[in-house]
Design a protein around this nucleic acid. Structure first.
Lengths: 199, 199
DNA sequence: GTCTATAAAACGATAGAC
DNA sequence: GTCTATCGTTTTATAGAC
């Protein structure tokens, strides 16, 4: 039927995006190529260009999807209904999962792209800024609420502390790749000890 | 004279190394090429191969020189004679200088290479591990001494705290490139507030 | 609409000129 | 000893087949 949904099209587009995301996290933006993706999907590299005309388009799509996931995640009932301390733990869990990934520790989005930042197309730079700002803003709110109700402790402004925590987490995943998962656990434990009173 | 020191050779080698270091920090290992260096030195790309046969050799040389600088720095009288709290400040100053670099914030070595870690030649991975371990070990000693004499405060093991501080600093320089120097200052202030009692 | 054949440029590296 | 001419490969991207 002419109105049938082009299921295979959707699948290919998504599979490309999934692979691009995986490669981006593993190798950075400049060290993965259309060929890597094409080989895995058993098509020619040029086929990828149909779905994502330029590498900039592909990279931007990856960040944009991640931004959508963040917005959805922070609005989920199972997240919004948690106490601030539990929301913080939920965030730490996301990073823990990355650190314990099957094929060795994965870095987070920000960490993978921040290092290559100066070489990124302008559109990707802008998307990354938005992603980072929204995440920091959300955590700052969580930290402020947690300090207000006495379940979290820290000095300074919530926004500064949020920036510091996220920076540490992003860095910790990079460290994990160099020195192993154990190093990540040390850093995470340090973070929790300081933020959660008498844990 | 046949025994005259080949001064120009030394200069070219060093100039290559300086440029490689600069490009490595600015663009990462995979996004700089022999051509970038050659154009700046007004020679052909292949000329670089004489001094550093492979890109792995060049990258390794950059890390190795940095490791030498670290070892020299931490042994300097003007560093060893400081109190632990002052030694910490001296370390923070190094990162501050990078954040306030003329042409925008520069990342640190570890941050620049950790993101590309999985794509690096084995020799470079090993050198980077050594560099990171020695720096962490040194800072752990400083932190332990500072807590012992009451000039520094923190919870947990000195080694864990050292790993956390260095991770935060490396991440903060990446953040600075994305969000500007102000964000770096926030994070640094947060670090100092927590480590230095009643500052 | 989806993909293959092919191009144009940049990459790291070898061989050989001076 | 130092560098240039050149190679083979890989890169992103276009043009056109089905």
């Amino acid at each position: 039927m002419s109105t049938a949904a082009p299921a295979s099209t959707f699948d290919t587009r998504t599979r490309i995006l999934n692979l691009a995301e995986e490669l981006l996290l593993a190798r950075g933006f400049n060290a993965f190529s259309y060929q890597h993706i094409a080989k895995e999907l058993q098509v020619k590299p040029a086929a990828i260009h149909y779905h994502y005309p330029s590498k900039e388009d592909l990279g931007t799509a990856v960040i944009r999807r991640q931004l959508g996931r963040l917005r959805k995640w922070r609005g989920l009932p199972r997240v919004t209904e948690l106490t601030p301390a539990q929301q913080l733990e939920a965030l730490l869990d996301v990073y823990r999962q990355r650190a314990c990934a099957a094929h060795g520790p994965q870095v987070c989005f920000f960490g993978a792209l921040a290092a290559d930042f100066l070489t990124l197309p302008a559109a990707m730079q802008q998307e990354l800024r938005t992603f980072s700002e929204e995440l920091t803003q959300w955590l700052a709110g969580v930290l402020a609420a947690g300090r207000a109700d006495g379940t979290l402790q820290f000095s300074g402004h919530p926004f500064s502390k949020a920036a510091q925590v996220l920076t540490t987490l992003a860095g910790a995943l990079q460290v994990a790749r160099v020195h192993g998962e154990g190093q990540f656990q040390y850093i995470l434990k340090q973070l929790r000890t300081e933020l959660l009173p008498a844990a």
